[in-house]
Nucleic acid binder design. Structure first.
Lengths: 202, 202
DNA sequence: ATGCTATCGCAACTTCATGTTGCTTAAGAC
DNA sequence: GTCTTAAGCAACATGAAGTTGCGATAGCAT
């Protein structure tokens, strides 16, 4: 995601860095405690032990702050490549399951899901985020193709959509925690579809 | 969805009904023009030619007003039952496609998608809405089972998830309009999965 | 038709959060 | 050590949410 933090002639080390970290961490914690709708700039500043103006001077809008905080948070765990595509897809599904079941995940999802819908400027950030999810799965899928587990013309995006979309859908429609049965189920459907050539590029 | 409008000893006809309709219509139009984030009670009242207090007296919170407005709006088009499950599923997919591609659909989706996440009280409303979508597709699916087009133990919820989830996912991840190719694609995947017994109840 | 009562209009008000500005103070780069 | 940048502080302005009291009016009943 793209940050719009002000960086012109900025000092990088020492206090600036500490303050920056403190604010991002505070944003994260406030998000956990009060949710997206209950997020207050004052509260974030207070929690970070910082003045409100400091927050405003660094991040023009709340959305910018959030994008930064969440980007910092979502460190990239590499996609597994175990030599078995079923195992790999299960790992991808379970990673998302854990994210969406967690307290933060819910809030983050609520934010991300609608970011692009609410503000046109955020659509590009959202798009890049999901595009990156596709990109980081490419090596794993290529491995599976090399081993003959998947057809050579399989579409990585369609494959990932097939695994991930039902999990999002479950969270949104029922609000229930995503159980492992759903993950295993979507992976089975995905593999069957892919092998039937239904997830191949046109 | 459940309304929490005040009804004790209420007058039903005449002015009350007119005012109610005017406010709901105004809410809808404001949602179109300014989006969910830009929705202002004052603006709704002004557009309805009504005072702000009138709105507050009828609907305790903005969420309640929205639930009412959107429920009124989504009149139930019956699910087609053409005697061919592929045609029926395509119709279901295209109905959702048109909804999500439309200006209102985007805003409604942004609201509905996160309603349950943002406020616990709204989760039940969301759950009922999606449960109803499943219910109204049951006769169509049963018809397909009777004709031998689908296995007898097919799970309607899983079937609908398979058709609908990728469309939501597309809207959220890229923001691009949903094209007919995607609808046809998801229907093919769904049918193949169902016939392979992957969408059957356990 | 005439009165009763729910409902609406109106205006003033409180509360709360956003976002801004001018000035002062402290940290850190050199 | 000095000089620049960033942060602290306090006072604003703005805007929307939500409330209250009272007077006006429309519809329902008899």
């Amino acid at each position: 995601m793209s940050s719009r933090q002000i960086t012109r002639g900025m000092r990088t080390g020492g206090r600036s860095a500490r303050v920056r970290e403190a604010i991002l961490a505070a944003t994260f914690d406030e998000l956990l405690d009060h949710g997206y709708a209950g997020l207050r700039v004052d509260a974030v500043a207070a929690r970070a032990g910082v003045n409100k103006t400091t927050v405003y001077r660094r991040w023009p809008t709340l959305e910018d702050l959030l994008v930064d905080a969440l980007t910092t948070w979502s460190h990239d765990v590499p996609v597994p490549d175990t030599g078995n595509i079923e195992t790999d897809l299960l790992a991808i599904g379970r990673e998302l399951r854990d994210l969406l079941n967690g307290g933060v995940g819910r809030q983050v999802a609520a934010l991300v899901l609608t970011a692009g819908l609410r503000k046109a400027e955020l659509r590009e950030a959202t798009r890049r985020y999901f595009a990156h999810q596709v990109t980081r799965a490419v090596p794993t899928v290529n491995g599976a193709i090399d081993r003959g587990e998947l057809p050579p013309d399989v579409d990585v995006e369609a494959l990932l959509t097939s695994v991930r979309a039902p999990l999002f859908y479950r969270m949104v429609t029922t609000g229930d925690p995503i159980d492992d049965a759903l993950v295993e189920h979507t992976v089975q459907v995905t593999l069957a579809s892919a092998r039937a050539g239904l997830l191949s590029t046109v």
